[in-house]
Amino acid sequence: MSDGITLGRTPVVRESLDRKAANRLRDAIVTGSLAPGTRLTEMAIAADLGLSRGTIRAALHRLASEGLVVQHMYSSWQVVPLSSHDAWELYTLRASLEGLAGQLTAQKMNAQTEKSISQAFTELIAASNNNSPAELADADLNLHRTIVAASGHRRLIQHYQQVETQLRLYIGSVNGLLPSPQDVAAEHRNIVESILAGNAQQAEKELRDHSLFYGNKLVALLDSHCE
């Protein structure tokens, strides 16, 4: 009996450490502390976090499944570079998913949905005044996540969650194209107003156009860096 309990506990503890390490690394990647293309080694990360290489390897495999890192030979890893093709795939997918989500959310607008979206937009406005690009990108993604969640479309939500972390990287890059942080909140006002007004067609258009416009700008910027 005691052997069974001991064996049952061990994987849980190890998984917890894996998750904690993955969370630390994920935060560093999405906030830009570990920039796209940065080389990573299991030994260096293990020493920095005070964990075993096996735990770090498991954490990195978690991030690889999210599309944030890739493995090279042996114990060498790399933060995934953001290429123009990556950006194109993300913004076209985002336009389709969020456009449909906005349409559905506007169609089923109720007091609870209005409150959650209004709160998320208020937080975005506050973040735009805090001079923190990471906080701004988090608030930006949270608003879009709230709209998607309110759609009630289970499979759409699942697909969105699969690329959510990659979208966080994309959003941070797009926000950097705007003249000021306050412009980020301003660019979302029409989106929020159309959804809260229950205008499904306009909400779909606003969200789709938002993704396509800034996605095209980011692709052009990335392409120019390759010339």
Rank of each mutant, 00 (worst) to 15 (best):
L141C: 14
H210W: 00
L222E: 04
A59L: 11
A59V: 03
I125K: 14
L104A: 15
G37P: 06
F213L: 13
I45V: 14
Q166R: 15
I5E: 12
G8T: 10
L93D: 11
R94C: 10
I171M: 09
H153L: 00
L82H: 04
V148N: 03
L143A: 03
E89T: 08
N199A: 15
V192D: 01
H159R: 13
T92K: 07
A101N: 07
G54C: 10
E42M: 02
G54H: 09
L222S: 04
E42A: 14
M1S: 14
L40G: 05
P181F: 13
I125R: 13
L90F: 06
A28S: 12
L178I: 02
K115D: 06
S52T: 11
V12C: 06
A58W: 07
E98C: 02
V80K: 12
A46H: 00
V69S: 10
E187W: 04
L196E: 07
A44Q: 12
G4H: 00
E15N: 01
H188I: 04
E187H: 01
D223Q: 15
F121L: 08
A44C: 05
D209H: 03
H144V: 08
V30R: 02
R14W: 08
L17E: 00
Q201D: 14
G67T: 10
A134H: 09
S118K: 10
D48F: 00
R189V: 05
A137W: 08
L177H: 02
P179E: 03
S211N: 03
I125E: 14
D86K: 08
